[in-house]
Design a protein around this nucleic acid. Structure first.
Lengths: 196, 196
DNA sequence: GTAAAAACATTGAATGTTCATTCATTAAAA
DNA sequence: TTTTAATGAATGAACATTCAATGTTTTTAC
């Protein structure tokens, strides 16, 4: 049983590694097998097809966002502080685990997404939605459709992460602070101007 | 001569159409040829390889952003109005020309990008950079690295466009207005609070 | 102006490669 | 002994690309 998990994990790891490097086309099953120290046929004991493998790799990240947010969020604080900590929690996680981030980017813009239900996608970002709704209900966040706020929030973070990972620019604390301020000043409730 | 342009255009159109539908994997040369009403071999008169074809399709959009911005921008107006018009110009163009938008998304997150110089990418967004710099220099835009502001600006628009195109949500004027306000309130210069 | 020649454009079947997937066989665990 | 796991060579499909043959346009020479 332990071995089974080891093998599955090795296959997941190799897949994540290859896809994050150069996209799906750079992850032929033969290479996945080789990098996972496994025979090509073995992968098919654990996964029906390449598509299944990738889709399950995504599913294995189901609770990722939830974990990061619950780690970063402290509901006793004022909402702006919570917002900042969640923002930085996500940003920091993606920088430290860039393979995961890059895989998610590939997956979300791939034909796999189109086939599988949008619900998968929806569920993945649910924790962000839940978090932002708290801010909406207590008047800290601008009134807008919840789907929109999630999209804009994640869009800001992912733009920052991509900029960092592109390696074409030195990212200092000023940059991340500016990105955060842009996000917060855009999303905060403009009718509650006492949140500096 | 006219015929040459027609054929090239037909090949570009077929490629754009297929890639925007389902990504690169959905655009085999045989299908491109068929949809362009051309023999497979003909494509290779005009393009060295598939990679060249796609790369040139991207290059053919070099002046896209510049065109949209110069169409939308009116430098006699207050900067907030210019910002709004450029924002809506880009948004509207991408909604109306969703194939172009979807192709760009695919291209920018593909291995093609990694191979070709980042300069291509840089140059593509230069007109946005130039526009935002005007706002920065006249004090309308928050002080931040130019690369970052471009990324955040385009990131906001592209998030909105993706949400619209996903078709899972009815996008009304309220939604686009909220997205715009989020963008502007985030990016405007907080030290110049008279820009309502 | 016309015919021959050269240059160019187009065709699509054939080629060779890359890959996902299968399966008969062997090894390990129950 | 039976069930489960693992192997990797073999299979076949999908694809990018080539090329010899054919059609079309342009140039040249008279």
């Amino acid at each position: 049983m332990k071995m089974i998990l080891d093998k599955k994990k090795a296959i997941f790891d190799a897949t994540l590694d290859l896809i994050s490097k150069n996209g799906f086309h750079a992850a032929p099953m033969s290479l996945v097998a080789k990098n996972a120290n496994v025979a090509a046929g073995t992968i098919y004991h654990y996964f029906d097809s390449k598509e299944t493998l990738i889709s399950e790799l995504f599913k294995s990240q189901k609770c990722l966002i939830e974990g990061i947010i619950s780690e970063a969020d402290d509901s006793t604080k004022p909402f702006k502080d919570r917002f900042r900590q969640v923002y930085h929690g996500l940003y920091t996680y993606f920088i430290k685990n860039s393979k995961v981030f890059l895989f998610l980017e590939q997956y979300m813009s791939s034909p796999f997404m189109h086939k599988n239900s949008k619900e998968e996608f929806e569920a993945f970002f649910q924790p962000i939605s839940d978090f932002l709704k708290k801010g909406l209900y207590n008047g800290s966040i601008r009134e807008m459709n919840s789907r929109l706020s999630v999209t804009l929030f994640y869009g800001n973070i992912s733009a920052l992460v991509k900029l960092c990972l592109s390696g074409t620019m030195l990212i200092d604390i000023t940059t991340t602070t500016n990105a955060f301020n842009t996000c917060w000043d855009g999303m905060k409730n403009p009718r509650q101007p006492d949140q500096n």
